[in-house]
């Protein structure tokens, strides 16, 4: 198992989750950020959303660092996750050259240059396996965890337990697992 970005490689990493209200974009960032903190890293999470809680544009920024964090919102991000075409188009310009782009391939048409692109069917998998598109966010979180290798799966699980009602925790664990395995596979392929 060789993640793309190994722990030793980074000092500060900025991740932007984006999509529309109702996809659990902010929750994904919160769960990932909380896991990072549990694993002894510094993390600052901010968000921006419109007045509409569903359907409007939604964005969640996460900065993870070994150092004290001064920036509140990164002008340029290392990792961009887009779960809507709108979000992708708005933020792709903020992705660093050589950065990582993860999109929900059923929702986003994307062929940007000079970035590493990952296309997964997060919402579709979630719908087919668990009957709920919204769990797609956990597929993404699992995928990201495997890809970056900077937070542990255990911390993510604890974080999920803390933030979600008991009755949906199991499904979210499974979605996390599905995403994680996809990410591992992809990492292996990339190494080869």
């Amino acid at each position: 198992m060789e993640p793309v970005l190994r722990e030793k490689d980074f000092e500060t990493l900025s991740i932007r989750f984006s999509g529309f209200g109702g996809q659990g974009i902010v929750l994904a960032g919160v769960i990932y950020g909380e896991a990072a903190v549990a694993d002894g890293l510094n993390a600052v999470q901010t968000q921006a959303y419109g007045s509409a809680s569903r359907g409007g544009a939604s964005k969640c920024d996460l900065i993870i660092s070994r150092e004290k964090i001064y920036e509140l919102e990164s002008p340029q991000v290392d990792v961009l996750i887009s779960m809507s075409q709108d979000a992708y188009e708005t933020y792709v310009g903020h992705l660093k050259k050589g950065g990582v782009l993860i999109v929900d391939q059923d929702l986003v048409q994307a062929n940007p240059e000079e970035v590493e692109i990952h296309k997964i069917s997060a919402s579709d998998i979630a719908f087919k396996k668990f009957g709920q598109k919204i769990i797609g966010n956990m597929v993404i979180v699992g995928y990201l965890a495997a890809l970056l290798g900077i937070v542990s799966k255990e911390s993510l699980q604890k974080s999920i337990q803390r933030h979600l009602p008991q009755k949906v925790v199991e499904d979210n664990f499974r979605a996390l697992e599905v995403g994680y395995n996809l990410g591992l596979e992809r990492s292996k392929n990339r190494e080869n």
Partner: peptide
Amino acid sequence: GEVGHMREK
């Protein structure tokens, strides 16, 4: 609103 909605440790 920045500090209010920001999450950190």
